[in-house]
Amino acid sequence: MGLGAGESAGGEGYQSPAGSVRLEQVIQAPADRVAEYISDFRNSGDWMVGVEDVEALGDDSYRVRLDTPVGKLEPGVRVTRRGEASISWVYTSTVEGGGEVEISPMPDGCNVLYSGNFRLKRKLLGRAARLAGVERFAHRNGERSLTRLKALMEAERY
């Protein structure tokens, strides 16, 4: 989904800081209900920490406003896969990479696996991201996002 090791973003010999997150959360709610909720990308602003706004552009394309350590970013997003128990997306501007959420049924609920990777496209933003600790920020926000999703689903407040 993002650049591979050794690939450059932002200029010859420059390697923008990359981040990746892979987190799981058990939720005491039916897998189909959780999957239905997360498969509507417009809901990401309600459960993803740092997503301040989601604007539908059509054809599974969106613009999101993100609050990050390097300031507000507004990358484009395109949903690439929507399955019965998953959703995947890629960033189409400002940020390279994407994310995926997979839901697996369990006897008393479901397991939610969130994974994502990113790399800022512009050299200046990449340097600022490294200084601001964007990978730690993304991991912390990922954990908080899954906690928020769990609270919403278990309280049926969605």
Rank of each mutant, 00 (worst) to 15 (best):
R157Y: 03
K121D: 00
T68K: 02
F41V: 04
V90Q: 13
E100M: 01
P30N: 06
N111R: 14
S8N: 12
G71Q: 08
Y91R: 02
A138R: 04
G126S: 08
F118W: 02
D59H: 10
P107V: 12
G109R: 13
A9F: 02
M1H: 05
R82T: 11
K121A: 01
T94I: 10
F137N: 06
G13Q: 04
G58Q: 04
N141D: 13
R78A: 06
G6L: 11
V34I: 15
E52V: 10
V112L: 12
D59T: 03
R127I: 07
W47V: 07
G126I: 03
V54G: 02
A56I: 00
F137A: 07
G142E: 02
K72C: 01
R81S: 14
I103M: 09
L149Y: 14
Q15M: 03
E36R: 15
K72T: 14
W89S: 07
R144A: 15
G116Y: 07
S88F: 03
N43F: 09
D108E: 15
V49Q: 15
D59I: 00
D67C: 09
E96V: 05
R33T: 13
P69L: 08
M48I: 14
V34A: 14
A138W: 02
R22W: 01
F41R: 07
S145I: 05
M106A: 15
N111M: 15
G98N: 05
G19P: 00
I27R: 08
A155H: 07
V77L: 03
Y114T: 00
E84V: 11
E143T: 05
Q25V: 04
E7S: 08
V112S: 08
V77E: 02
E36C: 10
S115F: 02
R63Y: 04
G58M: 05
V90L: 08
R82P: 07
V26G: 11
R82A: 03
R136W: 03
T68A: 00
S145Y: 08
N111F: 04
Q28S: 11
S86V: 09
L152G: 07
D108P: 06
D40N: 15
R122A: 04
Q25T: 04
V26A: 03
D60R: 12
N117Y: 00
A5Q: 11
Y114G: 00
G133R: 10
G83F: 10
L124T: 09
E52D: 15
P17T: 05
S20I: 00
G10F: 08
I27A: 01
E74K: 15
G58H: 09
S145C: 13
D67K: 14
G98M: 09
R140H: 10
E102F: 02
W47N: 07
V54I: 12
V70L: 01
P30Y: 07
A129L: 06
R82V: 06
R119M: 07
S88C: 04
P107L: 06
Q28N: 11
G126M: 10
E143G: 14
V21L: 11
E143V: 09
E143M: 11
G142P: 06
V134M: 11
S8T: 14
Y37M: 10
S104W: 10
M1C: 03
R130F: 05
Y158H: 06
E135C: 01
E7L: 05
G71P: 11
G4Y: 13
